[in-house]
Simulated scan of single mutants.
Amino acid sequence: MKRIMILLVSIAVLISACARAQPRGYVDATAWSANYTEDYIHEFHIQTASGQDTGLEGIQVGEFSKGGKGGSECCSLIPGVGQTIRVVWTVANTDDKAQWKTYSRDVVVIGSMPMEKDAYNILMVRFFPDHQVEAELIPDRGKTGLPSLRVDKLFSGQRVMRKMGE
């Protein structure tokens, strides 16, 4: 009986430790990117508001006239809807690295949180003129087998300009 109690207490401690390892309000997501500028974005990464790297990043986000999207990068635990993240990106409109510029913006994640714990979630990072950026969490993508209506039309081959907040 004593061994069973020790085992149950040990399991409870492990479970509570795991719960603390994942901050409340965080969500696992894949980064997708849409670029509504004529800047070539060499790379971007997501940090917490305090500057801690989340491990979520993207590369080679083409200019709008060249498709305006980057590849998807999987996956990392990030602050969820209503929380602030920092998007840091490098614009590389030339091969001369000395002329590359890095920008950073703190943004509040918009969208909605997933209904299921193991959902396939997208953090859609959108780049706009004047070095503006927004980040939208699109939850449960693929559950119905169809892409979410919130996924930018660039991903279905349609070059449709979007504005911040749409």
Rank of each mutant, 00 (worst) to 15 (best):
R3S: 05
I4S: 11
L8P: 00
S10A: 15
V13K: 01
I15S: 10
S16G: 04
S16A: 13
A17H: 03
R20N: 08
A21K: 06
Q22N: 11
Q22P: 00
P23D: 07
P23Y: 03
R24C: 01
R24S: 13
R24Q: 15
Y26C: 02
Y26W: 13
V27M: 09
A29H: 00
S33I: 00
A34D: 05
T37I: 04
D39K: 02
D39T: 03
I41K: 02
I41W: 02
E43V: 04
E43M: 04
F44L: 15
F44T: 00
T48E: 11
T48R: 08
T48C: 06
T48N: 12
A49K: 13
G51F: 03
D53M: 04
D53R: 10
T54C: 06
G55V: 03
Q60R: 14
V61R: 00
G62S: 12
G62E: 13
E63W: 05
K69G: 14
K69N: 11
G71T: 12
S72M: 14
E73C: 14
E73Y: 15
C74S: 14
C75D: 12
C75T: 09
L77E: 07
L77A: 08
P79D: 07
V81T: 14
V81A: 09
W89D: 06
V91E: 10
V91N: 02
A92G: 05
T94E: 13
T94W: 03
D95G: 15
K97V: 06
A98N: 14
Q99P: 01
Q99W: 00
Q99L: 13
W100E: 05
K101E: 14
K101V: 15
T102F: 10
R105G: 07
D106C: 05
V109A: 03
S112R: 13
S112T: 12
P114C: 08
E116N: 13
D118P: 00
A119G: 15
Y120I: 09
I122T: 11
L123A: 11
L123Q: 10
R126N: 10
F127L: 05
V133I: 13
V133F: 01
L137Y: 05
P139D: 07
D140Y: 11
R141W: 11
K143S: 11
G145R: 06
S148Q: 06
L149M: 12
L154P: 01
V160F: 04
R162C: 09
K163R: 12
E166V: 03
